[in-house]
């Protein structure tokens, strides 16, 4: 069959991972409508705006983890990098350092962790779970040590109220075209990293090492550099989320980003990113993070307890991964034909 004659929809559906992403989108719509029918407030514009804003954090974390998952690895240090970013930037700002310089220093620290992760996993072939478990503790330790094991004061105490407000508005409270800036930041980053993954050589190399690392090596893919790039993307996204959390609280919190690495895994796998590597698209991660946040939001709105919320989300994650494993092993196909 000639590819040129295919309709755009068929071509879209032919993209690997698109099926899972669309399924997640359909699931999202069903969940949203179901919650809306139970509680009309779910459909209110205020709620939608809040939903978009809180979804943004999960989207960024999801992008971070998806990049690493597609290479067939995992990054457990995401949450710690979020805390590091929040604490370093907040501490510096409380000391009166220019906010731009403060966030750049935080970025540098996150990038160092990303490079270390990449080298440990790519160069020294440490199991990614162990390597990033180590850097997770290191990152969290740094977040604690930055301000002598205390949360920071309000950032406005150092840089002044005006600059503090500017910082908070830019990352969290301000709006552009009626939508919170947080959402726009996440969407811009989504577009950049979507392009990087789907349209560039680096993106193909990321998929290649997740699909067949030995063949990738023999095809000239620099596994160390590519793995490091994936961990660097993770570091950048974590850094931004740290700044968002810092802006949200107006201070640095040592416990910021706790468990975020797992939220990232959840957002990715719900959207069809395979934890076994090689498959998944960021559109799926977008859907996954939206499903996650809609569930949390909807369950909140209908008054479900936190325990119930966690339980439901947990089941959805397991089902998504189970589906991936079952589909890969072709068990559905066998049953049909047997």
């Amino acid at each position: 069959m000639n590819n040129k004659k295919q309709s755009p929809i068929r071509r879209l559906l032919a993209v690997k991972g698109m099926g899972a992403a669309l399924t997640a989108f359909v699931g999202l719509i069903i969940i949203y409508i179901a919650f809306g029918l139970i509680n009309q407030a779910v459909f209110s514009s205020n709620n939608i705006l809040n939903l978009l804003r809180s979804m943004s954090k999960y989207l960024l974390i999801g992008i971070a983890q998806s990049y690493v998952l597609i290479t067939g690895n995992i990054d457990l240090s995401i949450g710690s990098m979020v805390a590091m970013s929040a604490m370093i930037s907040a501490t510096l700002m409380t000391l009166g350092v220019n906010p731009l310089l403060a966030v750049m220093i935080a970025l540098l620290c996150c990038l160092v962790i990303g490079i270390i992760n990449g080298i440990l996993v790519g160069q020294f072939k440490l199991p990614p779970f162990i390597a990033t478990l180590g850097t997770m503790f290191v990152g969290r330790g740094i977040a604690y040590m930055v301000n002598n094991n205390r949360n920071t004061d309000a950032i406005a105490t150092g840089i002044g109220k005006e600059a503090g407000d500017k910082f908070q508005n830019f990352f969290y409270y301000g709006t552009t075209a009626g939508v919170y800036n947080t959402f726009w930041i996440a969407i811009i980053m989504f577009v950049i990293f979507f392009f990087l993954l789907s349209k560039t050589r680096t993106g193909r190399h990321i998929y290649a090492i997740g699909s067949n690392i030995d063949a990738a090596k023999l095809s000239g893919v620099n596994v160390v550099a590519t793995t490091t790039k994936a961990y660097l993307v993770s570091a950048v996204c974590s850094w931004v989320v740290g700044l968002i959390l810092c802006a949200q609280a107006g201070m640095g919190n040592m416990e910021a980003g706790n468990m975020y690495e797992m939220y990232g895994v959840a957002a990715g796998v719900i959207g069809g990113v395979s934890p076994l590597g090689g498959t998944g698209i960021l559109l799926g991660t977008l859907a996954g993070s939206a499903v996650w946040q809609t569930l949390e939001n909807g369950l909140n709105m209908i008054g479900a307890q936190v325990g119930i919320q966690r339980l439901v989300i947990g089941i959805i994650v397991v089902v998504a991964v189970l589906l991936d494993v079952v589909l890969r092993s072709g068990q559905f196909t066998k049953k049909k034909k047997g």
Partner: peptide, 19 residues
């Protein structure tokens, strides 16, 4: 051993060309 199962035919073909 030399197949990228998750990538398209064209991506498989062009992997070496990217060098």
């Amino acid at each position: 051993t030399m197949i990228f199962g998750e990538l398209s035919y064209m991506d498989n073909l062009c992997m070496g060309l990217s060098r």
